[in-house]
Design a protein around this nucleic acid. Structure first.
Lengths: 337, 337
DNA sequence: TTGACAGTCCGAAACGTTTTGGGCAGCTTG
DNA sequence: CAAGCTGCCCAAAACGTTTCGGACTGTCAA
């Protein structure tokens, strides 16, 4: 609508001066600044984003590509984290833009469009996988990024992650301490880093407690439906587990339904513990025992890390693992006699 | 990284020809096109988004500003709709960008930055309110947009919406037909259009069934916690409702917890019906009766409407109200004796 | 009186595209 | 052979910013 040219003409000033006035540069007189700012407000002036980022060679934006099947795998928690991050980024004048990869297109292509098309100055990667091609790609391009979740990629990178390993190890030992011996684990596909960590945590806990893990491990799609099916299969066998550790709350909720359908009572006959501290876990029957990252501002922390990365901090100094805290509710208790 | 200039130099061609070759224009020889495309691939050429949209005077992007408290009010369903929409938009070369309004900043400001800064060619508005300042703003600016949900704004605009009125009216009559007389409604704040429609649908159903509505209506924040509190209050009174119509599934789940805590059995002592057809509703105990929009592709429909709007179709021809279908599960049944 | 200097302002170039309006060969057609 | 046409290519302008390198006034000190 209105450009610097419009403003300049209406004020009998040069484009240069208007631009510098709006940028509060020192070589513009205070009175001129006032007049310019006033006119800008009257004209609803808003700098053209394209022109600005073309000239400044930066987009003043951070991008995140939401994983394709995101609506399947509970995106709610992820999203509130991104909201937080966006607020912290806004303080530095950075917009957070979320992209959704077109149906046919690989997520990597979307990433390439963003990176090589210079649409963003930095990226946030969510839902990392152990071998994550996105990390390799971004590292090769040399664009700053922070991942939410670790990877096993060769090149070190900035990340923030919860200590799922310890969380699941602790939970396992708590259950063992309650007398459980057959503690099962329903995990997400182990291509996801978080899934692998939680699995390993469970394995470690079992080992420390001196318990066998044979036939006590299952993998399912990380949502209610998948875990429901996995749990159902477990409870059709002759000797079922007395405790169930699920990689996420959504999965725990699905598993709980299967437990009930098998005629067993969650919290008494079968203990169930999830992960995420989801709000909806407070409203299951009985309320779901779970664990969650012991920090109320993961998103903000992530944003700060990204800003420091943009400021040149070495990636090796930007690797945060946050403790995981147990949130006991009603779905776990002593092993049945 | 690599620009048209780089490519042109490496091929001994002009920038013009390279640009036109990549655009598959007819005045470039087939062999040249091949060579250019090959080089572009080798160089990982990706047009600079800023330069392109500056020159073309369009951003090839559609923006949506996610409502501030979105993580509170179930964003999951919304998001999967937006995913769908993005896929349909991608077919026309449009990116879907989601923005989150910075903490302090009003949502309208973010909108202004996007619109006046020319960051998007069109907008999607979600979670409409009855008097929605965003609609007025966009209408005044003359930028194409489609809202998800109706408004009561004076200027007509393109929208897609579910027929919440009929859905709730139908559900009410179904419950009345099952012998219920005290059918309560827990609604969301009636500034939200969807909340008002659902409330009015319930009122109409009660009227048609000849039932009184006094003391049977409550308003709460549209999540589990809010509806839990609202329902709890209802069941502390001497004569409680035998049926509960909740404005959303999340609210129904919260209400169900309150019902159980009051020592009543959902589906037998108290019927509960929600709205949204959420996946998690299949995993409550008992599974939640609900209703949902009778179309599997609301997002895609929305995208098509937006594309037609961009193509110049009149807004009056772009107003879709989709039927709502009842999804009976186990939380409703005959009124208790 | 001169030179330096601060305080204001501005012209022009640049960012990387797309698009306009040609130009130059080589053919075909009359 | 001239005129017209087709096929291929290109220079230059434009999009709206930011920024570099001055330029012009006055003021102050020497």
């Amino acid at each position: 609508m209105s450009s610097l040219k419009t403003l300049a003409r209406s004020l009998n000033l040069s484009i240069t001066t208007v631009s510098r006035a709006l940028d509060d540069k020192s070589d513009v007189s205070p009175t001129t600044k006032l007049k310019v700012r006033d006119a800008a407000r009257r004209f609803n002036y808003q700098p053209n984003a394209a022109a600005r980022s073309l000239r400044k060679r930066k987009a003043d934006a951070v991008a995140v590509v939401l994983p394709a099947g995101a609506s399947q795998i509970g995106l709610g928690a992820l999203l509130s984290m991104l909201f937080e991050a966006s607020h912290a980024l806004a303080a530095d004048g950075l917009d957070l833009m979320m992209f959704t990869p077109p149906a046919g297109e690989a997520e990597l292509n979307t990433l390439q469009r963003i990176v090589d098309g210079r649409r963003a100055d930095a990226l946030i990667l969510v839902r990392t996988e152990r071998r994550d091609a996105r990390v390799d790609f971004l590292a090769e391009r040399g664009i700053p990024f922070v991942t939410h979740g670790r990877t096993e990629c060769a090149t070190p990178h900035a990340f923030i992650d919860g200590d799922g390993y310890s969380g699941f190890c602790d939970a396992t030992k708590i259950l063992a301490g309650l007398g459980h011996r057959r503690i099962a684990h329903i995990g997400a596909p182990s291509t996801f880093t978080f899934a692998e960590h939680r699995l390993q945590g469970w394995l470690a806990g079992m080992r420390e407690a001196g318990l066998p893990t044979e036939n006590l491990s299952a993998i399912s799609t990380p949502n209610e439906t998948g875990a429901f099916a996995a749990a159902q299969a477990m409870f059709q066998r002759e000797s079922w587990p007395t405790a169930l550790l699920c990689a996420s709350d959504a999965m725990a909720i699905g598993a709980m339904t299967a437990v009930k359908q098998a005629g067993l009572e969650p919290g008494r006959d079968v203990s169930i513990i999830g992960h995420d501290g989801l709000l909806s876990g407070q409203f299951t029957d009985p309320p779901l025992s779970t664990m969650e990252i012991d920090a109320d501002t993961v998103g903000a922390k992530l944003a700060v890390m990204l800003l420091r990365r943009l400021g040149g901090t070495d990636v090796r100094d930007l690797q945060t693992i946050l403790p995981v805290r147990q949130v006991p509710r009603m779905t776990h208790g002593p092993a049945p006699a």
